[in-house]
Design a binder for these strands. Sequence first.
DNA 1: CCGGTTTTAGAAAAATTTTCGGCATGGAAC
DNA 2: GTTCCATGCCGAAAATTTTTCTAAAACCGG
Lengths: 154, 154
Amino acid sequence: MEQLDEIDKKLLRLLQEDAKLTTKELAAQLSLTLSPVYERIKRLENLGFIKQYVAVLDKNLLGQPITTFCQVSMRYHDKAFIDKFEEEIKKLEEVQECYHMAGQVDFLLKIHVSSLERYHNFVKYKLSEIENIGTLNSTFVLKEIKHDLGYPIH
Amino acid sequence: MEQLDEIDKKLLRLLQEDAKLTTKELAAQLSLTLSPVYERIKRLENLGFIKQYVAVLDKNLLGQPITTFCQVSMRYHDKAFIDKFEEEIKKLEEVQECYHMAGQVDFLLKIHVSSLERYHNFVKYKLSEIENIGTLNSTFVLKEIKHDLGYPIH
DNA sequence: CCGGTTTTAGAAAAATTTTCGGCATGGAAC
DNA sequence: GTTCCATGCCGAAAATTTTTCTAAAACCGG
């Protein structure tokens, strides 16, 4: 983080909003010419600050309007069971995110599906099939209030 | 969704993995020439399937290694209070995501901060300042097991 | 089989990315 | 104070990509 000056930070703020900005447009906003902007971007990529560039798609248009969070608790907490659970979760395409949590619940999953029926089938035939699951608690998203794609950079 | 053929779907799958693929590279993978690929991308952008292009940054390198999920319940559920809460949440940079949920809890927040102390201050001086909050329940992410950036496309 | 529409191929033009040599700035050594 | 070195920036050229355009091919309904 100390490797970044104010120009780098502004550059990152711009690119995490719109990765299609041309070097020329970025240069104008940063009051620089093309070369230094180009070199800074390459440096930020090489240092790992920029991990990748992605297209953000519309999940409703893609027919996946339902989002749920599912809290999972394991029956036993042996390392082998935990590792196995994590491996299985990674294979499930419906699970977009999975976190190992502190507190009562062991894992929190964020899931996208096309319908309630699909969710039912997902829980019944995929999630519940995983060994050693104790409790499952699903809550549905009614409305997305906010979803920032980037991080604040100070 | 019916507006998409198999080529469109493959194109979207590729672009949500790596938005920097050139039209030429995409054309090769899709067994087409530049023009149709170019036109399909423009069409997918215009139809809204592609919402934007972003650079994905490394939150650890940016100095925000702590992720928490915070469950919020309101004291009263008048529309005015709910609207007010949503407005206030949108202003808080620490809150990356906010969902209105079905079930016991009203809102689920995903929060990124640089330290536990920051989280404490965030809850004490920002979140709790919002009117009409009933209960707050924070759980910390110990480990990110999975975090897909795109959606499965069938 | 034909007419009309849509999609693609191919090439040229415009714009962007990438490379590179040189100049200015600032700090360290002497 | 001067020299040397490192760093970052500028400007132009080269390479590549994006974008536009016209004609040909493929598809569909009648």
